[in-house]
């Protein structure tokens, strides 16, 4: 039985198959409307989420399946002190596939070790969020037509941003990639991500504190939010939260075919005046997220 805990659980070939399947779903949604008739997705969200949970639920409903679950730890037996293993042993008796978000890092891996059905990691603390990475990859492929020979800029919180770490890991496997890392000193990409994803593969990269300085070379700009929930210290959060704000001025020197991505939710790191720029595709990204989750559900249920 296959689970999805880390984006690197999927080979580049499997990712391409998922992307192709998602594109086919976009083209022919009616052909997939009853693929999961009679199947149940359990969404176990031990911490709040709007986008990811609704995206999973919408994906399963669009495949003809049904959903059950909870949206906070308080409304589950975790509040009574039940272990992840016991919760999963129970829920996997009621469902065919599970999407799980948990504040503790590694909880979905523990779940996969005890589940009778496939488990999808829907985010574990600051660690992994593989379906966001699949969403990002589908967006890049739809918008640029390829995964290789791209200069990909990451801006904002590169230290705690799990989506950044996963996307760096996933994009590192393609040829001709260059990374540009833009962040304040305190939120730089962790050394281990640089060592194990970038340097080990000999991928060129540069670090910058100025977004404007590197803007002209970017094919993709991946903006991130400085996340309050990842800080133990409120003072540090307040000091760093407005480090980078993307405005139309900063885009003046950008390529015409730049694509701006953001995992959302946005606070203020992208000015709303950028939303109508044709290079902004963070709301399209949300739509793609549903389709790639549909493709993933089909794959893990063996119905692709």
């Amino acid at each position: 039985m296959k689970h999805l805990i880390d984006i690197l659980d999927l080979s580049p070939q499997e990712i391409m198959e998922l992307v192709n399947k998602a594109c086919d779903i976009i083209e022919h949604p009616a052909a997939y409307a009853h693929k999961c008739d009679g199947k149940i997705l359990a969404t176990l969200f031990f911490e709040p989420s709007t986008r990811t949970r609704l995206s999973f639920e919408s994906a399963m409903l669009s495949l003809g399946g049904q959903v059950l679950g909870f949206s906070s730890a308080n409304s589950s037996s975790a509040a009574k002190g039940e272990s992840v293993a016991d919760t999963i042993r129970t829920v996997s008796c009621y469902s065919d596939i599970i999407a799980m978000r948990h504040p503790k890092e590694g909880a979905p891996l523990v779940a996969s070790m005890h589940s009778l059905v496939p488990v999808i990691n829907a985010g574990d603390g600051g660690h992994n969020h593989p379906t966001q990475t699949l969403t990002d990859l589908l967006t890049i492929h739809k918008e640029k037509g390829r995964f290789d020979h791209l200069t990909v800029g990451f801006c904002g919180d590169l230290k705690f941003g799990r989506t950044v770490h996963s996307l760096v890991g996933a994009m590192s496997r393609y040829e001709g990639i260059k990374f540009v890392l833009v962040s304040p000193e305190e939120l730089k990409l962790p050394r281990y991500v640089k060592e194990e994803s970038i340097k080990k593969r000999g991928i060129p990269y540069e670090q910058s504190v100025s977004l404007e300085a590197v803007m002209p070379e970017l094919d993709i700009l991946y903006m991130t939010r400085v996340q309050r929930e990842r800080f133990f210290n409120e003072e540090d959060y307040l000091r760093l939260k407005d480090s980078y704000i993307l405005t139309p001025d900063k885009l003046q020197n950008a390529k015409e075919d730049l694509r701006i991505l953001h995992p959302l939710p946005r606070v203020n790191e992208i000015s709303v005046t950028v939303d109508n720029d044709p290079r902004a595709c963070y709301f399209k990204q949300v739509q793609y997220g549903k389709y790639i989750r549909m493709a993933l559900i089909l794959k893990l249920l063996g119905m692709d």
Binding site: S83, V84, K104, E105, G106, A107, G125, E196
Partner: peptide
């Protein structure tokens, strides 16, 4: 030692570590 790790709250889990960079 990561306070966000699942092993920090579910202490019956075996503490397992994996070699990721033999050179270092």
């Amino acid at each position: 030692k990561n306070p966000r790790c699942i092993t920090s709250v579910e202490q019956e889990l075996p503490q397992e570590f994996v070699l990721t960079d033999p050179a270092r």
